[in-house]
Amino acid sequence: MKYFDEKPTIAKRQPHKRTAEKAVKKESVKIIFEKFLEAKQKQNLRTSTLNEHIGLCKNVAKFHESRYDRSFYLSDITTQFITDYVYWMKNESIRYDGHKYIPEHAQTVGLSDATIEGRLKYLKTFVNWCLKEEILKENPFTKFEGFKKDEVEIEILTREELNKLLKVVKGHSDKSFKNFRDYVLLHLLVDSMLRITECLLISPHDIDHTSRY
């Protein structure tokens, strides 16, 4: 070969390409959510909170199945996806769908605003974790316009009605431990404005007997 002759072309080594199957497994919402749930379990979250996260994942997957005939990727969770998901929950999703203890006439169309708001909160938690782990590059909630709940006027007891209720409960409080327990519970609900579920979840470790709170 002479000096100025063109050198023979040598084929470069081609980079390894992942198969579609491996890419789907790595990026599927189900696989990523399992890692997310494992991280939350290590944070020692309450069982009720973990169940809320699981319920969210099942609900979002159900919405995806109702719209798309393909695998569910993390990249599918976009701002438009969240907007459509909220609309689906409000106007198409069946409340208590398939619940074996809820009669069919109670399985109505459309979830309550409180349920929708809760699902969005848990979805944000999942998205924020993905961002922190650098699995997601952009936050789909950044351009999400939000969800406005319907304003519902709540009827509350008047001061006179509340005093009558406390008086009746107090009159029975010395008859049994059960009645005394209900009397204390009612006072706690009124004085602290706790929800009944929050009140029932209080454990002895939550009470600071030194500082008295």
Rank of each mutant, 00 (worst) to 15 (best):
M1W: 05
K2A: 04
K7W: 12
T9L: 13
T9C: 03
T9I: 14
K22Q: 14
K25T: 05
K26T: 06
I32R: 14
E34M: 04
L37T: 06
Q41S: 12
T49C: 07
H53A: 08
L56M: 13
C57M: 15
K58V: 10
H64E: 07
R67V: 09
R70S: 14
Y73F: 14
I77L: 09
Q80K: 11
Q80A: 09
I82E: 04
I82V: 10
D84K: 13
W88I: 06
W88N: 03
K90W: 01
E92P: 08
S93V: 01
Y96I: 03
G98C: 05
H99S: 12
K100W: 11
H105V: 04
S112L: 09
D113V: 05
A114Y: 02
A114N: 12
T115I: 09
T115V: 09
I116P: 00
E117H: 10
G118N: 15
G118W: 00
G118E: 05
L120P: 05
L120C: 07
K121Y: 13
F126T: 11
V127L: 13
V127N: 02
N128H: 06
C130N: 10
C130M: 15
C130P: 06
I135G: 01
T142M: 09
K143A: 02
F144I: 08
K149H: 05
E151C: 01
E153G: 03
E153A: 04
I154D: 11
I156K: 10
T158K: 07
R159T: 13
E160L: 05
E160C: 00
E161N: 05
E161G: 07
L162R: 12
N163R: 15
L165V: 10
L166K: 07
K170P: 00
K175D: 12
S176R: 01
F177P: 00
F180D: 10
L185N: 05
H187E: 04
L189V: 01
D191C: 02
S192W: 06
L194Y: 09
R195G: 04
R195L: 08
T197N: 06
E198C: 06
L201R: 15
I202N: 00
S203N: 11
P204W: 00
H205G: 00
H205F: 01
H205L: 01
D206T: 04
T210C: 04
S211D: 10
